[in-house]
Amino acid sequence: MILALLPAVFFGWTLGRNDAANIYGTTVTSGILRYRSAALISALAVLIGAIIGGAGGMQTLSKLSSHTLLSASVNAAAAGISVLLLNRIGLPVSSSQAVVGSVVGIGLISGGVDWLAVLKIVACWLTTPLGAAIAGYILYRFFGFWFRKIPSILAQDIILKSSAIIIGGLGSFALGANNVANVTGSFAE
């Protein structure tokens, strides 16, 4: 049983390797936080997000196709290898797309893919960037308007630094909530 879970650990490692910079990369490179502090905050928030918010994604992923312990292990290994290889050659990669592709590939062999669930996931992949672009535009306009009204540069600096740390924690929470399903969803029933 433990050996069957090693591919999930490997995939979790590649996922963290791939996504870590998305959360606190600019916060660390700009000197707002040290790397170790960012890693600790992020790790704690990812863990909390996985525990509190991960069930929904896990249910969706586990519905794509039925799995045995072997197919779940192969799924995690295939997704982890694809993420690692694409990272090594410098291409952007989505762990969600890697794991869904792996599940569909295995499902095609075993004869069972829930195409409605696949369609739902693909719809999310198409609408998420658009929704994020709209939210980013609106939030930047709103907060930018109020931020420019702060007269003190010191106050602006404190607000920016504090916000970067807090938003990074929230992003890490979301990362854990979303990606726990990618790593363990095939093992769920």
Results as ranks from 00 to 15, higher is better:
67 H>E: 11
96 S>V: 10
138 I>K: 10
85 L>V: 15
88 R>G: 08
141 R>W: 13
144 G>S: 09
116 L>K: 11
53 G>N: 03
104 V>S: 03
42 S>L: 03
113 V>W: 02
94 S>R: 06
125 W>A: 11
84 L>I: 07
82 S>E: 05
143 F>K: 04
54 G>C: 02
111 G>M: 10
102 S>D: 13
43 A>S: 12
130 L>E: 04
107 G>T: 10
83 V>T: 08
73 S>G: 12
70 L>R: 04
45 A>F: 09
100 V>D: 01
79 A>S: 12
142 F>V: 13
143 F>S: 13
59 Q>E: 11
121 I>W: 03
52 I>F: 13
53 G>C: 04
87 N>G: 09
117 A>V: 15
83 V>M: 05
131 G>W: 10
54 G>P: 00
98 A>K: 03
138 I>D: 06
122 V>I: 15
79 A>L: 08
138 I>C: 13
116 L>F: 12
137 Y>Q: 09
137 Y>P: 02
44 L>Y: 01
91 L>T: 08
85 L>Q: 08
97 Q>W: 11
96 S>T: 15
56 G>C: 02
43 A>N: 01
110 S>K: 14
131 G>Y: 12
107 G>C: 05
116 L>S: 12
101 G>R: 05
76 A>S: 15
123 A>V: 12
62 S>K: 04
139 L>M: 14
117 A>K: 08
53 G>P: 04
80 G>E: 06
93 V>N: 09
95 S>Y: 04
127 T>R: 08
67 H>D: 07
124 C>R: 06
123 A>N: 07
133 A>H: 12
141 R>A: 13
114 D>F: 07
62 S>E: 11
93 V>W: 02
50 A>G: 14
141 R>N: 08
115 W>Y: 15
69 L>V: 09
57 G>H: 03
75 N>P: 01
48 I>H: 02
86 L>P: 02
74 V>R: 01
55 A>S: 11
113 V>D: 02
78 A>H: 06
103 V>T: 14
137 Y>M: 12
70 L>A: 11
134 I>K: 06
59 Q>V: 08
128 T>I: 15
46 V>R: 00
47 L>M: 10
57 G>A: 07
101 G>H: 06
144 G>W: 07
55 A>C: 02
134 I>P: 01
102 S>Q: 11
144 G>E: 12
129 P>S: 11
122 V>H: 08
96 S>F: 09
113 V>H: 02
78 A>D: 05
118 V>T: 13
45 A>I: 04
45 A>W: 00
123 A>G: 09
131 G>R: 14
96 S>I: 10
